[in-house]
Amino acid sequence: MPDTLSASLLDLIRRTSSDLPADIRRALQSGREKEARGSRALLALDTIDCNIGTAEAESAPICQDTGMIKFYVHHPVGYDTLRFEESARAAVAEGTAIGYLRQNSVDSLTGKNTGNNLGPGTPLFHFQAWRRPDVDVRLMLKGGGCENVGAQYSLPMEFPELGKKAGRDAEGVKLAVLHAIWKAQGKGCAPGYIGVCVGGDRASGLEVAKEQLLRVVGDTNPDPALAALEDECARIANGLGIGPMGFGGDTTVLAVKIAARNRLPASFFVSVSYACWAHRRRGVVLDPATDAITGWLYETPDEAAPDAGH
């Protein structure tokens, strides 16, 4: 690993894969305090707790599906993003060889594995310039099981199972979000962390929904209407009895985070991104002159994630 940037990003990969952020740990812990002794829900959460500890101690992957690798980078104007991509690819290949990451990039039609996580479309990058001198790099590793239960609704829409029609309003958004959580049951490795975008087009809606997963559990949505919707969706979801892994129980979601984007008058999309309990996202601040890590993000349960979608 010749350059400092690759070394910094390799450290980010190691910690993201093995060391669950503080806010997610705390949310899982409050789930453990709620579930009944001797229940399957508590067995699942206790196993999860044990797993989190071992993964951190051994710098080993929390989950063997080390997921789609996506870097979210905020950088000063004029920053060399092509060089960042090169260094990130080198770090991903190295992290795969060490075992922080599974060989997880396959040709879509033939299924052939590239063996190093590099290939067309992997890893993913999202670059955005800002007028700050530092570089903010967030990495999300999102596994396939939870990605597969994500959803996108075009309202208005009938929900025959619920005997309801979701209209183009807050109530309709609530129905769509709860339908997605109900439909997922335990299949996305509940308790899940739910990102939602109201509006946008189909592509940006899912993008922004996933970006909400960068927010911390304890933050407050600056839009009071969305904040209320987040709380209500989470409250109802946790009353559904789906529970960890879908075994039954009171811990179905860790949080619901909702953003809104302007839409065309003709469209009304509700996009839902479901992250499993092993919600792996970490971040570092880099000095653009030296590429060295000057700070870590997501170290405390309440640390906000600036510019993560508001």
């Binding site: 699942a44 196993t47 999860i48 044990c50 797993n51 071992t54 993964a55 051994e58 080993a60 992957p61 929390i62 989950c63 063997q64 596994g143 099981g145 335990g186 490795c189 960890p244 892994m245 075994f247 499993c276 309990w277 092993a278």
Partner: peptide, 13 residues
């Protein structure tokens, strides 16, 4: 038999 999803370390052990 349903294992605990994501508990990769517990199962590796």
């Amino acid at each position: 038999l349903h294992a605990i999803g994501g508990a990769a370390q517990v199962y590796a052990d």
